[in-house]
C-alpha cells in the first residue's frame, strides 16, 4: 500500500476513533503510526474533520419543525385509512398548513381539513396530470389571469357551466366538479382551480387564503362562499401570494 492509498482509506476514518477496530483501516493505520509524514497528515485530517463536524452540529432546526412533524403524523393516520390516490399529498398539505400556522401564525391554527385536502389535490394534480383546457370561455379566463397585476377572479365573473361545457378541463374532487386552467404570470406557470361551494359555510376553503408549501410545490386555497378556489405552482408561496 502506498501513502496515497493509505490517505484514501484514512479519509473515511471517523475523527472520534470509533473505527479503530475496523480491519479495513488496519494497514493504513499501521503505516500512519510508522511514517511521520503520513502520521502528521492523518493528525491534521482528523483535527479538520472534528472542527467541521463540530461546526455543522451547531446548526439548529427551525422552531416549530418538531411540532409540524408530529402534527403531520397525526394527519397521516387519518389519511391512510381513507386512502384515495392523492390522499398522502392531501395529508402532507394538512400537516403543512398546521406547520405554517406554527411558523408564521398567519394561517388558521386549525385549518378545515377539506381546505388542506383541496390544496393537496391542487398540488398533486399540478405535478402528476396532463393539462390543457379548450374553449373560448377558458381562453378568456386564461387571458385575464395572465394580465399583469390582475387579481384572481371571483365566481361572479365566471360562467362555470359554460366553461365546463365548452372544453375547460374538468376534474372531480370528492364528487364535486372542478375546473382547471393553466396560466403564466411573471414567467412562472400557475394552475387555477375552482369548484362550487357546498352548503356548509365557506365550502372546502376558509374565506381568507391559506397557504401550503410542500416539496412538490405550493398552493393557496380560499373561498368567496359561492365557489372554492385554489392556485398551485412550483414557483413558491410568495409567487402565489403576489397573485392574490
Amino acid at each position: 500500500m502506498t501513502n496515497e492509498e493509505a490517505k484514501f482509506i484514512l479519509s473515511a476514518y471517523r475523527p472520534n476513533g470509533s473505527d479503530s477496530g475496523d480491519a479495513a483501516f488496519g494497514e493504513a493505520l499501521r503505516m500512519a503510526s510508522g511514517d511521520p509524514a503520513l502520521g502528521d497528515w492523518f493528525g491534521r485530517s482528523r483535527a479538520h474533520d472534528a472542527a467541521v463536524a463540530q461546526k455543522l452540529r451547531q446548526i439548529a432546526p427551525p422552531s416549530g419543525l418538531r411540532e409540524a412533524i408530529l402534527a403531520g403524523a397525526r394527519v397521516s393516520g387519518r389519511e391512510t385509512r381513507s386512502g384515495p390516490g392523492w390522499g398522502w399529498i392531501a395529508g402532507l398539505a394538512a400537516a403543512a398548513m398546521v406547520a405554517i400556522g406554527v411558523f408564521t401564525m398567519r394561517a388558521p391554527v386549525r385549518p378545515q381539513a377539506d381546505a388542506a385536502d383541496f390544496a393537496g389535490f391542487a398540488i398533486n394534480d399540478m405535478v402528476s396530470a396532463k393539462h390543457g383546457s379548450r374553449g373560448e370561455a377558458s381562453g378568456a379566463l386564461i387571458a385575464r389571469l395572465q394580465t399583469e397585476g390582475a387579481k384572481m377572479p371571483s365566481g361572479a365573473d365566471i360562467d362555470f357551466d359554460r366553461m365546463r361545457d365548452t372544453g375547460c378541463r374538468t376534474l372531480s374532487f370528492k364528487g364535486r366538479q372542478v375546473l382547471e386552467v393553466c396560466f403564466v404570470r411573471d414567467g412562472s406557470l400557475f394552475h387555477f382551480y375552482m369548484m362550487r361551494g357546498v352548503s356548509s359555510p365557506g365550502g372546502a376553503a376558509a374565506p381568507g387564503p391559506s397557504f401550503v408549501t410542500l416539496a412538490a410545490g405550493a398552493a393557496a386555497v380560499w373561498s368567496d362562499g359561492r365557489f372554492d378556489y385554489a392556485v398551485s405552482s412550483t414557483a413558491g408561496v410568495e409567487a402565489i401570494r403576489r397573485l392574490l
Partner: peptide, 18 residues
Amino acid sequence: NGSDAGDLVQQTFFIWAT
C-alpha cells in the same frame, strides 16, 4: 434552503408514519 429542508424532513417522517 431551510424551507425545502423542513419540507423534506416532514415528508420523511410522514412516509415513516404511513
